[in-house]
Design a protein around this nucleic acid. Structure first.
Lengths: 195, 195
DNA sequence: ACCTGAACACCGTTCAAGT
DNA sequence: ACCTGAACACCGTTCAAGT
């Protein structure tokens, strides 16, 4: 059986993924290095290439986990009551999650994490989007919301929360003198769109 | 007088900035390297450090120019007529500019371009924001728009256009099955917010 | 004052060689 | 099959030395 000392690691893929999660949180997407991840997993710099195509591939795996967590957070917003109010709450939750996991969020929407063949991340991102889509569908069915194109509305709301979250993470809202907390700003913008 | 062959370049700062603008457009923020910029300016890799604190400082200069161009594009939207309609048009223009200059836009909102002491970029970004703020102020004064907090509304609208632009640049809207052009999506979202 | 050359520490990635 | 070691090409940054 393979031990920690043997040249077989056992589950190096997992160990690398775990180390990557820690490193992203510690240094952000910018300070992230594959060499450092390997070092933390106690393995040579070349070893990761048995399990990941390249650095971007490992980051895409991290992003996938991030999207799944975000999806869970969105779906955890209680249903029932006014369907529009639930959409506002989901928007709040989205922005809150993004700010609480800013580094992950940046990886999830990083330049190279959704390349052509990375179907897994794209699917995970779709699932997060679907949570939003479902909430819209429910609100429309219950009659509290009337809308022509539900997909388009989902795009609008996603733009609102993503824009608010990224501007807040980049401290751009603060620089512009906007003191309203990002979460509140997203909530009132969504409420305005749904009115 | 200094010639191209002398060890005095003449205006190396300018030459480096120009080369950086070209390189950002050619390779994007990710493929951008200070060494390559120096090479294109016909100078050693160490030379840029006489004119820029570091790589991020040169990128901040690029970002500053980007913000100024964006501001000009926004202010070029004709005034007069319905103040709300002008805001919609400015949103369109914002998204169009961002998509037409995607690499610049990513540099402008990149992680390290707005560090503590980089007052110039921050000021340029403020000027762009002010264009939006002014348009809101005009609409309110003319009576076509009623709003409690103009600054807050500016934050809402900025979130909308920034979110739409970045999701479009990252191809996330397409992946989510949203076929509406980003520019139209931003326009209808803004119209909804102002309604 | 402004730039070069060499150096340093660090990457991502490849590949023959080991177990 | 899985990992190491060495190598390669490339960075960002510093600093003594040249003009």
């Amino acid at each position: 059986m393979p031990s920690r000392d043997s040249y077989h690691h056992g589950d190096l893929r997992r160990a690398l993924t775990d180390a990557a999660l820690v490193l992203v949180r510690e240094r952000g997407p910018k300070g992230f290095s594959l060499t450092e991840v390997a070092r933390r997993a106690g393995v040579s710099a070349a070893a990761p290439y048995r399990h990941f195509a390249d650095k971007a591939d490992l980051l895409a795996t991290v992003a996938t986990l991030g999207f799944r967590q975000l999806t869970a957070a969105l779906n955890a917003v209680p249903a029932g009551g006014d369907g529009r109010q639930r959409l506002v709450e989901m928007g709040r939750q989205y922005v809150r999650w993004a700010l609480d996991h800013a580094d992950f969020y940046l990886v999830m929407f990083g330049a190279d994490t959704k390349q052509s063949d990375r179907t897994e991340v794209v699917r995970a991102a779709e699932d997060a989007f679907r949570a939003l889509l479902d909430a819209i569908s429910v609100a429309v069915s219950s009659g509290v919301l009337k809308v022509d194109d539900q997909h388009e509305l989902a795009g609008s709301l996603w733009s609102v929360v993503h824009g608010t979250a990224t501007l807040a993470i980049g401290r751009d809202l603060r620089h512009a003198g906007i003191t309203t907390p990002a979460e509140d700003l997203a909530a009132l913008t969504i409420a305005a769109v749904l009115r």
